[in-house]
């Protein structure tokens, strides 16, 4: 009966409205207001915040964020695919390996980033070993550059890429691979024409799961990049802390969100509405 159905849907609807739509409404509202002198907002409507976004400075930041997120996504896919393939064929140890992939989620991301800093520093583990082995004379500058940032991002988001790929590859019918070989396809041909097309839904899901959070990242560029680059996430964070310009921060956030939603819709549409 439909009133029972409404009753059961009510909690979820409440969560949606209170925890998601209401705060979103506040952000939308703020983005059209003027900043208070010391933070907060003044109730004076303006389009200034959005006009400022057209400044090349902010467009550049935006493009750079897209580039970083794109690079990270590509690297994650390249690394995750063989790993997911191996996992899907692992036989009895499969669940053990899956647990190992998921293990990092049991610890805080921040703690793991600090661990990477300990590894990469001049006096960190990697440099200490290399120096002791005599392979280098001076410590390598592994930290506080773009490579460290991408490394941190790929490390953090790799499990998000592995899991959907694994899910898709695990369901792959092995006889299809035999059929391809039977018809004369060498391993590379089988990969290109059978495995990759059939894994496409998993690849698309993995790409989304990495790209979207990467776009808004600010911890990794701060900690591993030495705060030397500013990405969209850092820009937004700055508006709510040092710059105390909440309306502008809200405008940037909203723009980022709209861009992401549009990009995702286009991406999904190309995939023919099949997500998994």
């Amino acid at each position: 009966m439909s009133c029972l159905r409404t009753l059961f849907l009510a909690p979820a609807a409440l969560v949606m409205v209170v925890l998601i739509l209401a705060p979103l409404g506040v952000v939308v509202c703020y983005s059209f207001l003027t900043r208070g002198a010391y933070g907060g907002v003044e109730w004076l409507a303006t389009l200034d915040n959005y006009r400022r976004l057209l400044d090349p400075l902010y467009l550049e930041i935006f493009l750079r964020s897209v580039a970083v997120a794109g690079t990270t996504t590509a690297l994650c896919l390249i690394l995750a695919f063989p790993l997911a393939w191996f996992l899907s064929r692992a036989g009895r140890r499969k669940h053990l390996y899956l647990q190992l992939v998921l293990l990092p989620f049991w610890t805080s991301f921040l703690v793991r980033l600090y661990a990477w800093m300990f590894l990469l520093r001049d006096t960190g583990l990697i440099n200490t070993i290399l120096l002791a082995a005599g392979w280098i004379r001076e410590p390598l500058p592994l930290l506080y550059n773009h490579v460290a940032v991408v490394l941190g991002l790929v490390y953090g988001y790799l499990p998000f890429a592995v899991l959907p790929l694994y899910a898709t590859l695990e369901r792959l019918d092995r006889t299809l691979l035999e059929a391809a070989a039977d018809l004369g396809a060498r391993p590379l041909g089988t990969l290109r024409h059978v495995i990759l097309p059939l894994a496409a839904p998993g690849i698309r899901a993995a790409a989304l799961l990495v790209f979207i959070p990467c776009l808004g990242t600010y911890l990794v560029p701060d900690l591993l990049g030495g705060s030397k680059t500013i990405l969209v996430g850092t820009l937004i964070q700055n508006q709510f802390t040092t710059a105390r310009d909440w309306p502008f921060g809200a405008a940037v956030s909203l723009t980022l969100m709209v861009f992401t939603v549009v990009a995702v819709l286009i991406w999904l549409r190309r995939g023919g509405d099949k997500l998994l």
Binding site: A37, L57, Y58, E60, I61, R64, S227, K228, T229, I230, T234, L235, N238, T242, A243, R244, D245
Partner: peptide, 17 residues
């Protein structure tokens, strides 16, 4: 004052970018 604060914020963004 507000105008100077805005300018400083923007300059900080430029420096970081």
């Amino acid at each position: 004052p507000a105008a100077a604060q805005r300018l400083r914020d923007r300059l900080w963004t430029e420096i970081k970018a």
